[in-house]
Simulated assay, not measured.
Amino acid sequence: MKLIETALPGVLILEPQVHGDARGFFVETYRASWFEAHGLTAPVFVQDNQSRSRRGVLRGLHYQTVNPQGKLVRCARGAVFDVAVDVRRGSPHFGQSVGVVLDDESHRQLWIPPGFAHGFCVLSDVADFAYKCTSYYDPASDTGIRWNDPALGIDWPLEDIEPLLSAKDQLLPLLAGQADDKLTVYGG
């Protein structure tokens, strides 16, 4: 496994070794020692999730105010454009984002530490999106940022397609409208 730094410190791309032949492929999707080999504390995961979406679906940008979730995300089928946004109050990277294409060909994953909002849009006809979380989902502290917040400047590759959003995601506020108690604290 190769760990690659992104423009946001702590957000990592994981490139696994894929073993393939005429029968198909095999790939390891998580091993604690990958993080430890790079001098990082391996995340402890308590919940796994999976969603299926069609082309043009955009989910996010979500985060939790209490017990923020670290997420190891991957696209098990199809392709998505995946985004992490730093929402840690006091962080020198507050409001900055990074976007990465994840697909079922490269098997790349993205590690998004606690304190980051997360979202993705589907690029393929169908996408199965799987992710591991470091904290349980807490509906009472679930919040987010509007996907097209101009202050974030995210260049979503939607090819002039109007994204398909949930009713909840359509009502998310801009980052500038987030109260301090809706943000996590930068750990330094």
Rank of each mutant, 00 (worst) to 15 (best):
A79D: 06
A79I: 01
H93P: 02
G99P: 09
V98F: 14
P92M: 03
H93K: 07
G90D: 15
R77D: 00
R88G: 03
A76V: 03
V100G: 02
D103W: 05
C75I: 06
R89P: 05
D86K: 09
A79M: 04
V100A: 02
V85T: 12
A76N: 09
S97V: 01
V83M: 03
Q96N: 11
V85P: 10
R77Q: 08
A84P: 14
Q96S: 01
H93L: 12
P92F: 02
S97Y: 03
V98L: 08
V85A: 06
R74L: 11
G99E: 09
D82L: 06
G90A: 07
V100Q: 15
R74E: 05
A79G: 08
R74W: 02
A76E: 00
Q96E: 14
R74Y: 10
G78M: 08
R88N: 04
D103E: 00
D86N: 11
G95A: 07
P92W: 06
D103S: 00
R88A: 12
F94G: 09
D103F: 09
F94W: 11
G78F: 07
R89M: 10
V100E: 14
A79N: 02
F94E: 06
G78H: 04
R89H: 15
C75T: 04
P92S: 07
G95T: 10
D103R: 00
R88P: 12
A84R: 13
V100D: 00
G95K: 06
R74T: 13
A79P: 03
R88W: 14
D82W: 14
A84D: 14
D86A: 01
G95D: 07
R88S: 13
R74D: 02
G78E: 01
A79H: 13
Q96K: 15
F94C: 01
A76M: 04
V80H: 04
A84W: 13
P92L: 07
Q96G: 03
G99V: 08
G78N: 07
V98G: 11
Q96T: 09
C75Y: 10
G90R: 09
S97H: 15
V98H: 14
S97Q: 08
S91E: 13
S97L: 06
R88F: 12
V101K: 11
P92Q: 07
A79S: 15
V85H: 04
H93G: 00
R77K: 13
G99L: 08
F94V: 02
D86M: 11
V85F: 06
S97G: 04
R88M: 08
D86Y: 12
C75D: 05
D82A: 09
F94Q: 01
S91Y: 12
V100T: 13
Q96P: 02
A76W: 00
V83F: 03
S91C: 10
H93M: 13
R88L: 01
R77P: 00
R77C: 03
R88H: 10
G99M: 07
V101A: 11
R77L: 11
V80D: 03
R88D: 01
V101I: 14
G78S: 11
V98E: 13
R77F: 03
V83R: 09
L102Q: 10
F94K: 00
G95S: 03
G78W: 08
S97N: 10
F94I: 00
V100W: 13
G90P: 12
H93A: 13
V85R: 10
G95Y: 04
